[in-house]
Design a protein around this nucleic acid. Structure first.
Lengths: 204, 204
DNA sequence: GAAGGAAACTAGCGCTCGTTCGTTTTCAAG
DNA sequence: CTTGAAAACGAACGAGCGCTAGTTTCCTTC
């Protein structure tokens, strides 16, 4: 997409408000889920009235799909980048999640819903990502520590550690006052994750 | 509570239907969240009409609180059992989650909501549980592998692995057809978790 | 078996949801 | 400055929500 041949240089006003709507909707959907988020809340947080939303999105479903699409697409791009090393890929994904801290919560909301009413974009993304992660892990020399049937469980565990950290951040802030999304805390978690992988899959 | 001095021996009809309502509500709340679950759905799944629910619970909020209370209480009991060894505690908690596979999804729904509208029973439970887990980990000799500031992150990571496995089970079933909650798969995950802890915190 | 209370039901209330119609305002191009 | 389309708006619709009053049915205990 993005066929911007001889396109207008300055982004139009409509595009900017659409982006603002997506930002506020992303935060609200991530915190309250699809059913718990009302279009009145989205409009109010975006500084608009409800009918104005319909100038940019066909309805609640379309808005939700657009939020998911905009958030997930860069992660897919980072995952399928052909020339990247494993460490680069992990670093790039962590960077993306850092830039959009609401995305993991959004994905977790979808995961919890399980089979029913699942967004197609997520289904198409999730399975190949797990498969690729499995292959990457098997290629590491340290994977011999684990049996064949344990590798998928290891992938799942690492996924949970990465995504779960962002998902639980708001709760920890409410409980401890500690902000896990601060740059220092994020750097600490990145270091910890590297140590974790090193402990589970030693290079030698 | 439960002042059952000279109480009726056989459980009354009302108690049995209350239990049935709790079961169906637990499943629906876990899958669709609080806002996404309607009392009409709960009543229909329980084989009742809506007004009958109010003979057992004061309203939607009270029903949700009762579901959470019934599910979390045994886990708390397992956590604060005074004479249990660490391995016993882990085993008992995994057994509880096995018996109530919907509970982790329910807790995750609460976690995702973060600070706002958080159930008090969860807040009171979560913080001491994390603190105790931290102490337990520090007592293990293998914890010297990790720095002081990494221990809380390790606790969080292990929590995510345990709870996340149950939370993602419905999605995996929808994607692969593989049922992670089967007894064989659960035994595999239990073994894997033990290996994981052993790799992260070696005994020697 | 009679009686009384618990439990399930029918009908419907007030309210908020997502959505739409018709109008007014804003903005960028000629 | 004019102009026409894009964008924001006020008002309101039908549907579905949680919840309740009043009535009927069921079960338990003498």
């Amino acid at each position: 997409m993005s066929a911007a041949a001889a396109a207008p240089i300055r982004t139009a006003k409509g595009e900017r408000t659409a982006e603002r709507i997506l930002d506020t909707a992303e935060a609200l959907f991530a915190e309250r889920g699809y059913a718990g988020t009302t279009l009145r809340d989205v409009a109010s947080a975006a500084g608009l009235r409800i009918p104005s939303l319909y100038n940019h999105f066909a309805g609640k479903d379309a808005l939700y799909a657009a939020v998911l699409e905009r958030g997930i697409a860069p992660v897919i791009d980072a995952l399928v980048a052909p020339d990247a090393s494993d460490a680069d890929t992990v670093q790039r994904i962590l960077g993306q999640l850092n830039r959009r801290p609401n995305l993991p919560r959004l994905v977790q909301q979808e995961v919890l819903r399980g089979g029913e009413h699942l967004s197609p974009v997520l289904v198409q993304w999730f399975k190949p990502a797990l498969t690729q992660a499995e292959e990457t892990l098997r290629a590491r020399p340290g994977s011999r520590r684990w049996s064949d049937e344990q590798i998928p469980l290891l992938v799942l565990a690492l996924y949970q550690v990465v995504v779960g950290y962002f998902a639980i951040a708001p709760l920890m802030k409410a409980l401890n006052g500690e902000d896990l999304l601060e740059s220092e805390a994020l750097a600490r978690q990145t270091r910890f994750f590297a140590d974790l992988v090193a402990a589970l899959l030693p290079e030698e």
